[in-house]
Design a protein around this nucleic acid. Structure first.
Length: 271
DNA sequence: ATGTCTCTAGCATAGAGA
């Protein structure tokens, strides 16, 4: 069977409901993982997704900020939420697909929204950047404790870091810009390599191809200027790496009316 | 360099965060 999994930071699920239903109708991924839903759980627009065949949902939202959710056509056997940095932020939810998911049964998907980190790339001056770095440290501790790649797992989401030179429009211009500073790119790469996760997008689109998933709202000519960054990622455990047969960056959604600043990132697994 | 979008509080608009 083919399993299509998508990650999308929608910047408010209620403002973007028409975009999400359009994407689900057009692309029909099996699983859609959302970040920045900015929506309390009791106000999550579940009915619209159920009407499209996405009967299985896992939601970890809060009022105003952050928030993650998983919409799925395949059933879960379990869901799990982790907290980080002693905050109540909604930045993670995991689901494990159940036997009803056939060949995908047992696959765990971790959906993350890593802190953006503010503007000043100095943890001594900027508590938001300190929080981002501490979050990455806790991710490192988590992989050491939980060994997520020992099972068939996927880690995806808005990691708010563009780790490689080919992940930004201008490497040198962004070296001191939060999302591409050496301290955070090194920390993310150390986490990925130690955990063993494989960057599924880069496996299919190797460096030096430029790959972007985010374009700032402040760039009115975003498509022509193309000053993007790859902030959204899909990683797979080594046991799944050879099953990844395709990837898709749905850049067209950035051109829709009143878009998110992030676009959907998808992989196809042949299981 | 600080342009745009979305949220909350609270009722018009300012501040925070991304």
């Amino acid at each position: 069977m083919k399993l299509v999994v998508t990650s999308w930071n929608v910047n408010s699920i209620r403002m973007r409901l028409d975009h999400v239903t359009r994407f689900l109708t057009d692309q029909r991924p099996d699983v859609l993982c959302l970040q920045e839903t900015k929506c309390p759980d009791d106000r999550f627009p579940s009915a619209a997704f159920k009407a499209l065949g996405y009967h299985h949902m896992a939601i970890n939202g809060q009022k105003g900020y952050h928030g993650v959710a998983v919409l799925s056509r395949l059933p879960f056997t379990s869901t799990n939420v982790m907290g980080f940095c002693d905050k109540n932020d909604s930045r993670h939810i995991a689901v494990t697909l159940g036997t009803g998911a056939k060949a995908a049964a047992g696959v765990t998907i971790h959906n993350f929204y890593v802190p953006a980190g503010g503007d000043i790339p100095d943890p001594a001056l900027n508590p938001r950047f300190a929080h981002k770095l501490a979050f990455l440290d806790e991710l490192m501790q988590w992989q050491d404790r939980a060994k997520p790649t020992a099972s068939p797992s996927i880690l995806l989401g808005d990691l708010n870091i563009a780790p490689y030179e080919a992940d930004v429009w201008n490497h040198k211009a962004l070296l001191n810009v939060v999302s591409h500073t050496p301290i955070e790119t090194a920390r993310l790469e150390e986490f990925r390599q130690t955990s063993g996760f494989v960057d599924a997008i880069r496996q299919l689109r190797p460096i030096p191809e430029k790959v972007f998933t985010w374009w700032s709202y402040r760039s009115p000519d975003w498509a022509a200027a193309d000053k993007g960054r790859r902030l959204d990622h899909v990683w797979v455990a080594p046991a799944l790496a050879s099953s990844v047969t395709d990837s898709s960056i749905s850049r067209e959604t950035r051109g829709w009316e009143r878009p998110s600043d992030h676009v959907p990132v998808s992989i196809t697994l042949d299981l």
